[in-house]
């Protein structure tokens, strides 16, 4: 059986691993290039994007991550993961990998006291998926090659370009497994 990986440098790796196991997948935590080479799909979880960028740089993981994305294997990126994948990051501007042609503003829903739950617009491609936003980023611009899979009040919250699906919310923290299933299928 193929194994899926969750990048476990820091952040919501536990909850993603549980969500994938709910769907019947075997899951490994990924912290090194060798561990990354052993998995057939990857989650870039939520957490702090500044911390992730520092650890990716300090432990030379950028090239292996770029190679993994280029291989065409499925990738799901949430919250901080979306920020890492974006073409451009603002407020404040910071480095990103450019795997999805979107512009993302960090912490754009406000501080923690404004974090909230709701459901996606019913006419979303993926349907009214459960949404949980935590100090979440907002997608301000969507490039032409990018497909919008879910919107909230008309604004894109889940997008896909090629093999990378990226969301501003936390599907791993709700009971709704439709986002994980749409990216990785069932095990």
């Amino acid at each position: 059986m193929s194994r899926l990986g969750v990048l476990a440098l820091q952040g919501g790796y536990d909850a993603h691993a549980k969500a994938l196991r709910d769907l019947g997948h075997a899951v490994d935590e990924v912290r090194t290039a060798d561990e990354l080479a052993a998995v057939e799909g990857l989650v870039l979880p939520g957490g702090e994007s500044t911390t992730h960028l520092i650890l990716i740089d300090r432990f030379a993981l950028e090239a292996p991550l770029r190679a993994f994305v280029a291989s065409g294997k499925p990738v799901l990126a949430t919250c901080c993961g979306l920020i890492l994948c974006a073409a451009e990051v603002v407020s404040p501007p910071q480095k990103s990998f450019g795997w999805v042609d979107v512009t993302v503003a960090r912490n754009a829903w406000g501080r923690q006291v404004h974090s909230f739950e709701d459901t996606a617009d019913p006419d979303s491609a993926l349907g009214p998926v459960g949404l949980l936003f935590i100090r979440a980023p907002r997608i301000q611009r969507v490039g032409t090659g990018v497909q919008v899979l879910a919107t909230y009040r008309g604004e894109p919250v889940l997008v896909r370009q090629g093999n990378v699906t990226a969301g501003a919310f936390h599907p791993e923290l709700t009971k709704d497994r439709s986002v994980h299933a749409a990216v990785f299928g069932r095990g």
Binding site: Q10, G11, E48, H114, F116, I134
Partner: peptide, 20 residues
């Protein structure tokens, strides 16, 4: 929109896992 629910509160703690 349900703001500051208990899952949203615990969710931030989840995002701090593995960190300092």
């Amino acid at each position: 929109m349900d703001v500051s629910t208990f899952p949203a509160k615990v969710g931030l703690a989840e995002m701090l896992k593995g960190g300092v």
